[in-house]
Design a binder for these strands. Structure first.
Lengths: 205, 205
DNA sequence: CGATTTAATGACTCGCCGGTCAGTTTCTGC
DNA sequence: GCAGAAACTGACCGGCGAGTCATTAAATCG
């Protein structure tokens, strides 16, 4: 079907490999401290090659964030679509988000950065996706509230509270073994008057 | 006492004026998007003058943050030293922090930035001050828990939760009139099983 | 007023990094 | 093997902005 192409064949899946390398670099350093040269080196490729796959640094970076939020959105959607008590759903997403952001601590700064670039259309798109994600959480909370399983907070505010708490609380993770208590603390805050349940096991690292 | 100095007299309080101008600029744009020229212009002064008062951009920026956190620390200390129910103290600091950070939205990004510059001694000093501030909040929460006025969360974690929630929740402030409900929501989360209290008034803008 | 001292100025320098493009490599088709 | 085509390379370019410093301004002293 697809006529065998002429010329040098592209390195397999290079675009994807660049994104992964970029992630590794951007996670550790801040946007303006990351040189395209760094990304190229991390990918074992020359700088010029990056520009064959992405128009520029900003686009590479945005593609990276879009990938990440897409991934998170997908996972949350799956978790939240499942049946079961709202409290357990909340617990699962809290556990996932704590792990995800712990392993990508610099994303928080990156994200903050985009959220203030409101001029550009790409940034608006980011905000849209970011909102969609918050809405997923919001809906899960609204569900729980409607069923009387969660304390009666405004779901929209509660969703941002939850996401904010996750960011704040992640400060105290020094090892995977601290994950359980943090999850318990965050979740219990959303259960009306419930005591934190004892949970000693650690999540995936 | 102080012998009248010779030569051209310095512009009165220029260092302070530079800091205020820098605050105005850094609040709106990100660190790397702020040119020293911008700060100078905002202060109605030439670029070189900045370097007579600060060794460089980084130092100016850190001085700015140190000022800010010093101010916050002072206010919280005063609030927390007062007598009264823990819940009311929490309410007052939540109200203050929401307003403060709403009016300085970009500080959050600035702060995040410093917190990843762990190599430099100045950054370590920042972390120390940041910790001291969290400890203030922590103590207020511990107080409330000890007196049975707040839900029984680990105060250290709860303090970070509270600060995180404030950051997250600020997303929804579009005007001063939204302050009351947000304060109520955040505070009620820290009162065991309490319903959000109706609070319609707005805080200082 | 001129000498002296200190403050402020802004044109200039210089290193850095995003982006480019002529050249090289590695493939296919004949 | 040779021509052609597409992908990759890395030395180079240009702009930008932090930091400098010779010059100018503004005061005091005698």
């Amino acid at each position: 079907m697809n006529r065998p192409r002429r010329g040098r064949p592209p390195i397999v899946d290079l675009r994807h490999r660049i994104l992964r390398a970029a992630e590794a670099v951007f996670i550790r350093r801040e946007y303006d401290r990351v040189r395209m040269e760094d990304v190229a080196r991390a990918c074992g490729v020359a700088k010029g090659t990056l520009y064959l796959h992405f128009p520029g640094k900003r686009e590479l970076y945005l593609a990276l964030l879009f990938d990440a939020i897409g991934h998170v959105h997908e996972i949350l959607e799956t978790e939240l679509a499942s049946a079961g008590p709202a409290a357990e759903k909340i617990e699962r997403i809290v556990r996932f988000l704590l792990s995800y952001f712990w392993n990508r601590r610099y994303f928080l700064a990156l994200i903050q950065r985009v959220e203030h670039l409101t001029e550009e259309p790409a940034a608006r798109e980011w905000l849209r996706r970011r909102s969609a994600l918050a809405k997923l959480v919001e809906r899960a909370i609204a569900d729980g509230v409607a069923r009387g399983e969660l304390r009666g907070l405004d779901p929209r505010i509660a969703a941002e509270m939850l996401l904010g708490m996750i960011r704040g609380v992640n400060r105290y993770r020094v090892g995977a073994d601290a994950l359980g208590p943090l999850v318990a603390a965050v979740v219990s805050t959303f259960l009306e008057g419930a005591e934190p349940r004892a949970q000693a096991e650690a999540g995936q690292p």
